[in-house]
Amino acid sequence: MSDRMARDRHRKRQLAEAVVGLIADGECLFLDNSSTNLALAEILPASSNLTVISNSAAIVAALADRNDIRLIAIGGVVDPNLGACTGPEALVQVQHIHFDRLLLGACAVSCSHGVCVFDPTDMAFKQQLLASANYVVVLATSDKLETTAPFRVASLKAIDTVVVESDAEGAICSNLAAAGLDIVRAAGTSSQPPISAKTG
């Protein structure tokens, strides 16, 4: 996770900043294992009465000293390749939790293949997260858009909002909006207009 966080740190921070305004006071959030979600954890606003749940060792560590956040760690064996718990113990725990907003980690996002990842256990865990979430947001750097990975988590119908970089290709964003997603652009120098297919 530390290696992934070090790559494109500024870009991930911009995506995270775009998400903060979507979060309402008192929400229960699930921050899925993701270096971009770690950037979000680092800037979550104070005094918002948030409950944050995560399976990521790095995210839990980043929030452990936050007295203003109710933190719930999803446990089990930490996969060293992922830096997170995604095994059977973690699956059982999330089956019994409902959260207002899921920040879903993704390795690839495309109109044809939906949201995909490289690890089958991670895929199964994310599918359970989707079943437990009221609203789903994916933060995607431009290198993940219109790409694919071996294990399909879900079609785009399972996602409500995708947060993209300011320079994300307009045609890709238009196709994602046509598939029914709200598109939120991170702050930057792009002159691309916002695209919205729905509200939520």
Rank of each mutant, 00 (worst) to 15 (best):
T141S: 14
K157E: 15
I172K: 14
Y135S: 06
Y135W: 13
V153H: 01
E169N: 14
S166V: 07
S142A: 03
K157C: 04
S112P: 05
C173A: 09
V162K: 09
C173H: 05
Q127P: 13
V163W: 07
M123N: 11
A154L: 07
N134F: 03
L145H: 10
V115Q: 07
P120D: 08
D119V: 08
V115A: 11
L156W: 03
L130P: 06
G170K: 14
A149E: 05
V115M: 03
A154E: 07
H113Q: 12
V137L: 08
M123Y: 07
K126P: 09
V138I: 13
F151C: 10
T147P: 04
F151A: 05
I172E: 13
K126E: 01
L139V: 00
S142Q: 02
G114R: 13
D119E: 15
R152E: 14
V163G: 05
A133D: 00
T141A: 15
M123G: 07
K126N: 05
T148L: 05
G170T: 13
V136Q: 11
V115K: 01
Y135H: 15
A171D: 12
L129I: 02
A168H: 09
Q127D: 02
T141M: 04
V163S: 07
V137T: 08
L145S: 12
P120G: 00
V117Y: 03
T148D: 01
D122C: 14
T147H: 06
T141C: 14
A149C: 13
F151T: 01
A168F: 11
D143N: 11
K126G: 03
T147S: 10
A154R: 10
N134M: 02
P150G: 07
F118K: 01
D167W: 09
I159Y: 07
V138F: 07
C173W: 01
M123W: 06
L156R: 04
T148R: 01
V164H: 01
T141P: 02
P150H: 13
L139C: 09
A124C: 03
G114I: 02
S155V: 00
C116Q: 15
